[in-house]
C-alpha cells in the first residue's frame, strides 16, 4: 500500500447557515492523481481552499506530509511543498510571465527574513524559471506582461507557478477549462509527467473526459458531502453520481 500524503477527516466548512463542505473524508496517496468531481456548488473549491489554508475548517482535520495542517496559513502550506492554481486565475498582471514564475521559485527564500534579502536576478533562478515555462509551453511569452496573456496561457502560467512551489502535492482547480481542444492533450501529458516526477496531484475538473482519463481514483462531492469514491469506471456508473449531475430518474430517461 502506498503512503498517505494528504488525509482529510470529517472536514466541514460552514458559512453562516450554508454548509459548503459537510463532513468530507478522503485520502490522497503519494504519486497519485485524485480527481475531485461534483456539480457546480458542490464544495470542491471550498475543499481546495481548506486544504491550501485559505480557509480554516469549521470542523475536521487535515493531515499533510505527516503533520496536522488544518488552520495553517497558505504561505506555510506552500513551504510544506503544496502548490496550487486558482479557478479564477490570479496572475501578477504587471510583472512579466518569467517574473511571475520567479516569484514562485523563491518559496524557500521567503521562509526566513535573512534569506529573503538575497537577490532574485541571478542566472540560476532565471534558468529554473525558463525551464518551468518550457514545460508548460510558455517560454515564448516569457518577457510579456502577464496581464496581457489570454486565459489559456494564464492557466498554464498558474501550473508553472504551482510546479515551482509544489514538490509534494499540486492542486489544480479547473486548469483545463477555457482551453482549446488542441491545448488539452499536451497539458494532460504534462500532468501525467508531474506524477512520474513523484508529485501527487489533486484536481478539480469539469471536463469529464480529462478527469476520467487522468485520475487514478475519483471522489465525487454534492452539496458539500461525499457521495462516491472509487476508480473512474466505477464512479461513472454510480447511480448517486448520475443523479447528482442529471437529476432523479435521469439515468433511465437519458439512457
Amino acid at each position: 500500500m502506498k503512503k498517505v500524503l494528504l488525509s482529510v477527516r470529517d472536514l466541514a466548512k460552514h458559512f453562516g447557515g450554508l454548509r459548503a463542505v459537510d463532513g468530507v473524508s478522503f485520502d490522497l496517496h503519494e504519486r497519485e492523481i485524485l480527481g475531485l468531481l461534483g456539480p457546480n456548488g458542490a464544495g470542491k473549491t471550498v475543499c481546495f481552499n481548506l486544504i491550501s489554508g485559505v480557509y480554516t475548517p469549521t470542523a475536521g482535520e487535515i493531515h499533510f506530509a505527516g503533520i496536522r495542517s488544518d488552520g495553517l496559513p497558505p504561505h506555510r502550506m506552500a513551504a510544506l511543498g503544496l502548490g496550487r492554481t486558482f479557478q479564477i486565475v490570479k496572475p501578477f498582471s504587471n510583472l512579466t510571465v518569467l517574473d511571475n514564475v520567479i516569484v514562485a521559485c523563491g518559496v524557500d527564500r521567503y521562509r526566513s527574513l535573512a534569506r529573503s534579502f538575497g537577490g532574485w536576478t541571478g542566472a540560476a533562478v532565471r534558468k529554473k524559471a525558463v525551464e518551468l515555462l518550457e514545460r508548460v509551453g510558455l517560454a515564448d511569452e516569457a518577457d510579456r506582461k502577464a496581464g496581457l496573456l489570454p486565459l489559456g496561457h494564464l492557466r498554464r502560467l498558474e501550473i508553472a507557478r504551482a510546479l515551482a512551489v509544489g514538490y509534494r502535492l499540486i492542486l489544480l482547480d479547473e486548469s483545463f477549462s477555457g482551453l482549446r481542444e488542441e491545448e488539452i492533450a499536451p497539458l494532460m501529458d504534462l500532468v501525467a509527467r508531474i506524477r512520474q516526477d513523484g508529485i501527487s496531484v489533486l484536481l478539480i475538473e469539469h471536463n469529464m473526459r480529462v478527469a476520467m482519463k487522468l485520475s487514478d481514483r475519483i471522489v465525487v462531492l454534492d452539496h458539500g458531502r461525499k457521495i462516491a469514491e472509487g476508480l473512474p469506471g466505477e464512479v461513472a456508473r454510480d447511480p448517486l453520481v448520475i443523479e447528482a449531475y442529471l437529476g432523479r430518474g435521469g439515468s433511465s430517461r437519458v439512457a
Binding site: P74, H75, F86, P91, N94, V103, Y110, A164, V165
Partner: peptide
C-alpha cells in the same frame, strides 16, 4: 519581489510561500 507579488495579488502571493 515578494512585495511586488503582494501588490499584484495577495492570495496568489501567499500560495507561493509569501507571508
Amino acid at each position: 519581489l515578494a512585495c511586488f507579488a503582494l501588490r499584484e495579488d495577495e492570495t496568489a502571493a501567499a500560495s507561493m510561500g509569501i507571508s
